[in-house]
Design a protein around this nucleic acid. Structure first.
Lengths: 223, 223
DNA sequence: CGCTCTTTCTTACAGTGTAAGAGTGCCGTC
DNA sequence: GACGGCACTCTTACACTGTAAGAAAGAGCG
């Protein structure tokens, strides 16, 4: 009856991008259809023309994040233009490592979305292609497909688990700093905290430590 | 005005246990204060006398689950009564492994709660004690506290990441079986699926593969 | 008996996802 | 020009959520 309701020029991508931006800024739990609507200058129900329901919206966020993972050249490649490791099957550990690093970087760019990535199985073509490519590289090195995928999978789940913990203990913006628990009676823990456990540098160090251990351990796996 | 409202004999533990049972049976997303109330024969608001808010209830679930982790003796101990590895500092890898296995077992007993365990940082004394004990064992083997905790932490986050993926792709009871994505164009993936990728046995195999790789890799870490 | 404390219930409110349908404007075709 | 259909947006409504405020009912004690 009243106001005009001009077209807003939306599409699925714009909706998803706005949702991701909102989730990054205020946290997933504050991402509601109504809030996303007002963010886009539109009523909540309008969004249902671009997304069948909220679950699909969240899936879309995950899609957006994993699609942005762009593994750089493996560390140690001096000349990226003519990278000899790119086609050398023996260097799949370096490639796996580059994938893990890129994955973590992208996840930490969207801390609030990590629980979604961890929970919702990814079936998007982009993600499948990334997995297929990495696994195929291992296949070229002589690993059977099942083992190759187990390895890729193991690295991916490790990265997700790590980032989840990293993001959960780095509260980002919103809430109160979560009072540090009392560590009397836990000498090893207390000593480690005094040495920097839980700091950003420690997260980085822990990631590198475990990733190297995992990958060298996997590389030594009997075929 | 009407009905009598007899005492129900509740306490925090009973409430948490009922909540865990409900979450296991119907999934966390179906765990609401009102439903939990009717489960216990009580009105929703009554629960707020045992738990300050829903967040604390969820924290309590996590507490319950991690407190139930009981690492058995490390594999390979022939005589559990007089287990020589229990006090041998050199066997910390086996001990770590036992912890990881026990942790996974307990998590898979409560698939719906895994996302909570993954998201909510655990500060309960029980959990801290478990971490302290394991890390102290590594300390006795000569590792500095910070490194010891990084290692314990790495294993724990790996287990969580793995179980999250395992539980997410094993939909348990409720929803539709989630149509398998189209794998044409992804030959390595398709071959692996044909070889059993994603089956329960595969999850077990992948866990063992990655855990062994991680732990042997960590054991080879320079001090 | 009455006092006080604990436990329970009632009512209420703001916020959620979303089903159903009404309204508006654009576009192509007579 | 008028008209029919389509794409998009809004309105309204419902069942459900967490929880704040406070009333009532019982237990244990003087």
């Amino acid at each position: 009856m009243a106001a005009t309701a001009r077209r807003a020029g939306l599409n699925r991508t714009k909706v998803l991008r706005a949702a991701l931006e909102l989730a990054d800024r205020e946290g997933v739990e504050r991402l509601s259809m109504r809030r996303l609507g007002t963010e886009l200058g539109v009523e909540a129900m309008t969004l249902y023309h671009y997304v069948p329901n909220k679950g699909a919206l969240l899936d879309g966020l995950v899609e957006l994040v994993v699609a942005a993972v762009r593994p750089g050249p493996p560390a140690g490649a001096d000349d990226p233009v003519d990278d000899p490791t790119a086609d050398d099957p023996a260097h799949w550990p370096a490639r796996l490592r580059a994938f893990a690093v890129a994955f973590r970087t992208e996840l930490l760019r969207h801390p609030g979305v990590i629980p979604l990535v961890a929970t919702r199985p990814v079936g998007s073509p982009d993600a499948l292609r990334a997995v297929e490519e990495t696994a195929a590289a291992l296949g070229r090195a002589g690993l059977p497909p099942l083992l190759a995928l187990r390895i890729v999978n193991a690295v991916a789940t490790f990265v997700i688990g790590h980032c989840l913990a990293e993001a959960a203990t780095t509260p980002g913006h919103p809430e109160e700093p979560a009072p540090a628990p009392d560590l009397t009676g836990f000498p090893t823990l207390a000593a480690a905290v005094a040495d920097g456990l839980g700091t950003p540098a420690d997260h980085q160090a822990r990631f590198d430590l475990a990733l190297d251990a995992l990958i060298t351990g996997l590389a030594a796996t009997p075929r």
